[in-house]
Simulated scan of single mutants.
Amino acid sequence: MKDYVAYLDNKKRITLRGATYQYYNVKEYGNGCIILEPRELSVSKSISSRTLADMDRAVSNF
């Protein structure tokens, strides 16, 4: 567990030391608590048949 003081810079940004993820989901509560949950963006395994059909229609209309 890390314990350190962080501050906002002139552009209202904060720096996380040693952050292991690039994206975080932020939950800010009215009492001042802020919760950061790490998020990993991933590429989907496949494109659905519906999406492929929509793409085919768009290309044929073009």
Rank of each mutant, 00 (worst) to 15 (best):
M1I: 14
M1E: 11
M1F: 11
K2H: 05
D3Y: 10
D3H: 08
D3V: 11
Y4T: 05
Y4D: 11
Y4I: 03
V5N: 09
Y7F: 10
L8N: 07
L8A: 12
L8W: 07
D9A: 09
D9Q: 10
D9K: 14
N10H: 12
K11M: 09
K11S: 13
K11E: 15
K11V: 06
K11L: 08
R13I: 05
I14S: 02
I14H: 04
T15A: 08
T15V: 12
L16C: 02
L16K: 00
L16T: 03
R17G: 08
R17V: 07
R17D: 14
G18P: 00
A19R: 08
A19W: 07
T20E: 11
T20V: 04
Y21I: 05
Y21L: 04
Q22T: 13
Q22L: 09
Y23K: 06
Y24K: 02
Y24A: 09
N25T: 02
N25A: 09
N25P: 02
N25Q: 15
N25E: 15
N25L: 09
K27N: 05
Y29V: 00
G30W: 01
G30C: 01
G32T: 01
G32E: 02
G32V: 01
G32Y: 05
C33W: 01
C33N: 12
I34W: 01
I34S: 11
I34D: 06
I35Q: 03
I35M: 05
I35C: 02
I35K: 05
L36N: 08
E37T: 12
E37M: 04
E37S: 15
E37L: 07
P38F: 01
P38L: 02
R39F: 07
R39M: 11
R39P: 00
R39Y: 02
R39N: 05
E40R: 09
L41W: 08
L41T: 06
L41F: 07
S42P: 00
S42G: 10
S42E: 15
S44H: 09
S44L: 13
S44I: 06
S44Q: 13
K45F: 02
K45A: 15
S46H: 05
I47T: 14
S48H: 04
S48F: 00
S49H: 12
T51V: 15
T51I: 14
T51A: 15
L52P: 02
L52H: 03
A53T: 10
A53L: 13
A53K: 09
D54Y: 05
D54C: 08
D54G: 08
M55C: 06
D56W: 04
D56V: 11
D56Q: 10
R57L: 10
V59A: 10
F62Q: 03
F62L: 09
F62N: 07
